[in-house]
Amino acid sequence: MRAFRATATATTAALLGVVILSGCGLARPDHALVTFTAEATAGGSGPAPRDTSAPAPEPEPGAPSPPPATAETIVTVTRSGGFAGRTHTLSVSSDGSWTRRGAHAEPEGGGLLSSTQLGRLRAAVEAADFAHLSRTAKSGGTVFDGFTYTFVRGGLKVVTNDGSVPAVLTKLLDALPPFEG
């Protein structure tokens, strides 16, 4: 009974970890994972780890193809504040799909950019040159009831406010889908 509980606990913990990582976008098929087998290790201390990072065997002819790899996020922008104090986050992926989320990360909409819109957004993101932008851009005056923008690109984050948004980020904002639907 103890071995069953230990196995059940380890399995539950492993599944919970996968669910949490997939929600954060960290569990991807190309990342190495360690799973646990149901057999106990020598000494009965719990499940034995099994490396699953080895390449998968070639599919048999006529077998269904695996799902395509998920698209990479090009940019994520959160806009908060304003007169009503609302928060919305837009994330745009490399395939042109975009999602809009509310203050509590609840889905509020989404869509697919046209190839022209996606090209315009890609050009604006590249022109912004996130690696060389100040992490906090606050050069302008205060705009009462203005918005605060948080831009995230490739692990780099830039925070700015209305009245201080650099021109390169204004072009990026113009290329995004609407923050409200």
Rank of each mutant, 00 (worst) to 15 (best):
L133E: 06
A38H: 10
S139T: 14
S94E: 12
G82L: 01
T73I: 10
L133S: 05
A71L: 07
S53N: 06
T12K: 13
G85T: 05
K157A: 11
L121F: 09
R120M: 09
A27W: 15
D95H: 02
L172G: 00
P178K: 04
G155D: 02
L16G: 15
T150F: 00
A71C: 11
P166R: 00
L21C: 04
L21E: 13
D162F: 07
L112H: 08
T7Y: 07
R50M: 15
E60V: 15
P29Y: 04
A123F: 02
Y149T: 01
S53D: 13
A42E: 14
T136R: 13
V125T: 12
L26R: 10
G102A: 02
V152N: 08
S65W: 06
T142G: 01
T35M: 13
G85K: 02
L176H: 08
P67Y: 12
L176V: 07
D95N: 08
A27H: 12
L15M: 10
T148E: 13
S134F: 08
G154T: 09
A123W: 00
R100W: 00
P166K: 00
E60R: 11
M1N: 10
A175L: 07
G109Y: 08
F4E: 06
A175R: 12
A84H: 05
C24Q: 15
L112P: 01
V77M: 03
V75H: 12
A137F: 01
D95L: 08
A56Y: 03
S114Y: 02
V152K: 13
G25L: 09
S114K: 05
A13Y: 07
F144P: 07
S164W: 00
V19Q: 15
A167N: 10
T37V: 09
E126F: 07
A40T: 06
W98I: 03
G81Q: 14
V165T: 12
S91I: 04
S134M: 06
R122L: 04
A27Y: 06
S115R: 12
V125I: 13
T37Q: 14
A10Q: 14
A103V: 11
L15S: 11
P55L: 14
A42G: 10
G96C: 07
G155Q: 01
